[in-house]
Design a binder for these strands. Structure first.
Lengths: 198, 198
DNA sequence: TATTGTTGATTGAACGTTCAATTAACAGCT
DNA sequence: AGCTGTTAATTGAACGTTCAATCAACAATA
């Protein structure tokens, strides 16, 4: 069992177990015992690989943010997309299978709440929020005047996050996530079409 | 001090103290001792008036939801407003001084996160989310065809919640809340104007 | 005095961290 | 190949802390 470089593997297993635990028990009732239990390991391993519970929590958030980043990169990097299509890709990246999953939805929400009191987590959240805005702004700028582009990016970012939040809290998340994606794209499409009319 | 009045007074003092404690320490680090400390009372009083910590937490959420409800009622009840003006009132009610305060913002976020695992809180959240949608839908229906009205209400609700969330998490909440209100109203105005053109 | 309102020390459970002990893989040596 | 020393990987019991709840005692009012 030991020898090979288990570090990367074990760390990912513990991050996965953290997501499962948060899904089942919520972040509040997630303990090193629930996590290590889902991972099939002992509690001590968490401190060994992450320096403590807090370290694992932060690593899990970093993982989620990175997955979100990758979701967009996969859809755009290398390709030459029109601004309108790229905006669609941004919407889709924010509503991937992973992002819709209960485990991830609950984890994001818990982290948002905790980020307001934890400067370490707050930094990550801020970067993540800014990225959505920047990504949107980049494409809108190619379609609208600068000021309009900024407002469009702000409104779109808010609508995407708001739809995501309301869908996650909904009693029918599946359906709501699907509609959220359609209505987000429709809004962006309308913004672009509107400009041509003036 | 008169007896019957004491109950209501003490309960509100404890709810206020809960909001202060959540602002300072976060819900996670809010204990019956931090709350009773801010209220200038002893810890035992919480169990006496709310049956326990959880009872006080739920009462605090009920208070916030009720304040939100009242904010709209004050702006609309008795008056005869055009649908467009009433939509503006709905936006304003969601960005009142109270809702923008750090204490309330942090509390809402914490509750949202906890509501995903606590059926009792989830019920309140669901009612609250539904209310914003219903309020918007009511006015949109007087301006747009039924299907368009539903989509408009969903998009507006998402944008309002999204702006609120991003503003609360922002490093410059003051400024962002102000812009959020302006851009939310602008979106609704555009929705209405758009319809006339077709 | 009786009733209501309030205190705060105490209790016991839950939790994160630590660390000595154990296990398993590998390298070097014969 | 077989043995041995070494190190990485992992365990889990023990410890100290935190916290919600309890309740016996005290205070204020009627």
């Amino acid at each position: 069992m030991p020898r090979p470089v288990m570090k990367k593997l074990r760390q990912q297993q513990l991050i996965d177990a953290t997501l499962v635990s948060v899904e089942r028990h919520g972040l509040q009732h997630t303990t090193i015992n629930t996590i290590s239990g889902f991972a099939g390991m002992s509690s001590g391993i968490i401190s060994h690989y992450f320096g403590g519970k807090q370290g694992l929590i932060e690593a899990t958030l970093r993982y989620l943010i990175d997955e979100l980043k990758q979701a967009l990169l996969i859809r755009t990097s290398g390709k030459t997309l029109s601004p309108a299509v790229r905006l669609s890709m941004i919407v889709e990246a924010n509503f991937t299978e992973l992002q819709r999953s209960e485990a991830v939805a609950k984890t994001w929400l818990s982290f948002w709440a905790q980020a307001m009191h934890d400067p370490g987590l707050a930094r990550f959240q801020h970067i993540n929020n800014q990225r959505l805005y920047s990504n949107l702004l980049f494409s809108f700028k190619q379609l609208l005047p600068a000021t309009d582009a900024m407002n469009a990016a702000k409104q779109s970012a808010a609508m995407i996050d708001g739809f995501w939040l309301r869908s996650a809290l909904s009693s029918t998340p599946e359906e709501d996530f699907k509609q959220a994606q359609i209505l987000s794209k429709a809004f962006i499409k309308a913004l672009i079409a509107q400009h041509g009319e003036n």
